[in-house]
């Protein structure tokens, strides 16, 4: 499903070179739910951004859905992001001036789909996250947890092969965080979605199949979760 080979990423700022990622190798199987953990600043977000084609690695190879990324030409990556990847961010990143339904439709605007079909896909996605009753609200009229559910609906509306979540519960209290985790688990278990999630929360991480630990830009360990092994076997 997802394969990273010798990924390096360095940031050059004011003569200081930051090595954010150092020779990362990682394989995620189809239908797997993994979490990435590590101390602040270790490079988790950088890693997720590179997987999600939001950033270019300094060197190394990535393939998504067995398709190797050879070109970072805008047209190519834009289309891959649109069709293969769904993103969930810690701070939701909803467009405040658009109603819930329009926010969810956003990724479909960049596809060749009729307005009617867009609407029905967006309604289905909202139904999936339990927000059918809030479609015409503006994001500011929703709780944080509800906003994150809208963001999830937006991430899954295009039926991407890979769902990436960067601390999806980071801005939520534990109750709302739990709700989000339940939705992710359901997407994984019921729909077979492949999910890569960055988290700071050990409890959350334990609910995934595998924990990848990053320290100072390097992968240090990958712990299999015996509890869920049967799910991917």
């Amino acid at each position: 499903m997802l394969k990273l080979k010798n990924i390096n990423k360095t940031y050059q700022t004011d003569k200081i070179e930051t090595i954010a990622l150092n020779d990362i190798n990682l394989t995620v199987n189809k239908g797997e739910f993994i979490s990435i953990m590590g101390p602040s600043g270790c490079g988790k977000s950088t890693l997720l951004n590179i997987i999600g084609l939001l950033d270019k690695p300094s060197s190394g190879e990535i393939s998504i859905s067995d398709q190797q990324i050879t070109s970072y030409q805008d047209k190519v990556v834009a289309s891959l992001r649109n069709k293969k990847i769904g993103f969930i961010f810690q701070s939701f990143h909803l467009i405040n001036d658009l109603r819930v339904i329009d926010n969810v439709e956003l990724p479909l605007l960049y596809r060749d789909i009729s307005a009617k079909e867009r609407r029905s896909l967006a309604l289905a996605a909202l139904e999936r996250v339990g927000l059918s009753a809030r479609t015409t609200h503006f994001p500011s009229q929703l709780s944080g947890g509800q906003q994150q559910r809208v963001a999830i609906a937006r991430a899954i509306v295009g039926k991407p092969a890979l769902l990436l979540a960067d601390e999806p519960t980071g801005n939520l209290d534990s109750h709302m965080g739990n709700e989000i985790m339940k939705i992710l688990e359901s997407l994984h278990q019921d729909d077979g979605t492949t999910i890569v999630m960055v988290t700071h929360d050990e409890e959350e991480a334990k609910r995934t199949q595998r924990i990848v630990r990053v320290y100072d830009g390097q992968l240090v360990a990958a712990t299999e979760q015996p509890l869920h092994l049967d799910a991917t076997a």
């Binding site: 999600g52 805008d74 834009a78 289309s79 990143h93 467009i95 956003l106 990724p107 960049y110 937006r154």
Partner: peptide, 16 residues
């Protein structure tokens, strides 16, 4: 700028 970043993350091309 944030909105532009978001749209690109969701698959908008530079041109669009």
């Amino acid at each position: 700028t944030k909105e532009i970043g978001l749209r690109r993350a969701l698959g908008a091309s530079e041109g669009s």
